[in-house]
Nucleic acid binder design. Structure first.
Lengths: 219, 219
DNA sequence: ACCTGAACACCGTTCAAGT
DNA sequence: ACCTGAACACCGTTCAAGT
């Protein structure tokens, strides 16, 4: 029986719209996010959303920003620079693993805020690592491009995986597909298929980061 | 006045459909490729296309395959393995630079034929380079993911670039955008903006390949 | 076997009209 | 200022009907 006027918690806002969008994207994937589904969930009209957000691209960008920003927490300042890069990269990897649609959008829309944030951190850690001014740009761009490439792959894999199917089953399918190619023409693919079946995406991602760091260190 | 019955060069076929699709994609971009536009260009009904090709995804996949396969020509067999990797990577880079929509699709649909072909070649060259069985899978995947990451970026940049605008102008815009961020919070982005303005995409792509190769060699 | 083209179910986006 | 919801222009895809 509070006498204060009740807070209008149902008022529309960019935050509420983005939160609802993230919910839909996480639950049912990219195709499920329509302005009709979103306005239904928010109990409003489609036009109301357009008053707060420019268009669907801006909506996806905001949702991606939201999810990536949460992943970009700073590690302890005592962390060694190369460890810091691994930590940050893993954070992005895990965020995209949990929200594959964010990976897809990150790849399609570079130069968005999340991207600049990633670039800044990678660059800072590389500088701390002693990378010279001259190679910093190339090294940073190589790392970012690698991270984005994996992000895209992960997003694509998640799209492939039917809801409910587990990772092992999908890997088995892909391995079988690889083995179905002609062994004479694709010997390497054949032998990689074996390793593909029981590899760990996360470990392999880190292995790539380590290769890049080793390459940078050798300069 | 040949008496032979004229060849029906206007008969529909997957090849003609794919060729027309590539034309539309190259000329006017991804959004311009609709079944209506395609059937109009082929002077037929939309349903006719569906008799030859499963759906739009299959159409894009076939168009991508077509464009990437053309880029994957074998270098001379006398080529050193690391040179061969650079040559192949540059071939893909240039193909995607010329057909950005193919880069976008390659990123979205891994495990398609073009991907397997790329993986095979990268793996073969790495083996020739003396890479051990144990690290082959990780090294190959790192290279492929990096190439795909750059492919995605290139595709996105091309989508950003308004038709007619040149690369230099776009780079200037992005650099200006980077400089508009707070210099205290984004010092690295600020200093990279300078190098961004007059960097060469192709050279930077190769620099990344070299970093990866150096990292692999250091194992 | 192959093609036609109208029809269906669905989008993103706009906008006059409301409060 | 903010919301409503019908309307618009446009998709991918299907399918009965043709040849």
């Amino acid at each position: 029986m509070p006498s204060r006027t009740p807070r209008r918690t149902d008022a529309l806002s960019v935050d509420r719209i983005v939160a609802a969008a993230v919910d839909i994207l996480d639950a049912d994937g990219e195709n499920a996010l329509t302005f009709r589904a979103l306005s239904a969930r928010l109990a409003t009209g489609a036009g109301a959303i357009y008053w707060h957000i420019a268009d669907k691209d801006a909506l996806l960008a905001a949702a991606t920003e939201h999810v990536i920003a949460a992943a970009l927490t700073d590690g302890g300042p005592s962390e060694a620079p190369d460890t810091a890069i691994r930590t940050m990269a893993l954070g992005i990897f895990d965020a995209i693993d949990a929200h594959p649609w964010a990976g897809a959008h990150l790849v399609r829309q570079p130069w968005q805020l999340a991207m600049v944030e990633i670039f800044e951190r990678v660059g800072r850690h590389l500088t701390a690592l002693g990378v010279t001014q001259a190679v910093l740009f190339n090294a940073g761009s190589a790392l970012v491009n690698y991270i984005l490439g994996v992000a895209g792959q992960n997003a694509a894999n998640a799209r492939l995986r039917p809801p409910g199917a587990d990772r092992a089953a999908l890997l088995g399918d892909v391995a079988a597909r690889w083995l179905s190619f002609d062994a004479q023409r694709y010997p390497v693919v054949h032998q990689m298929a074996e390793q593909l079946r029981d590899h760990d995406d996360r470990e392999q991602f880190l292995a790539g980061i380590d290769i890049l760091l080793a390459g940078v260190a050798s300069r």
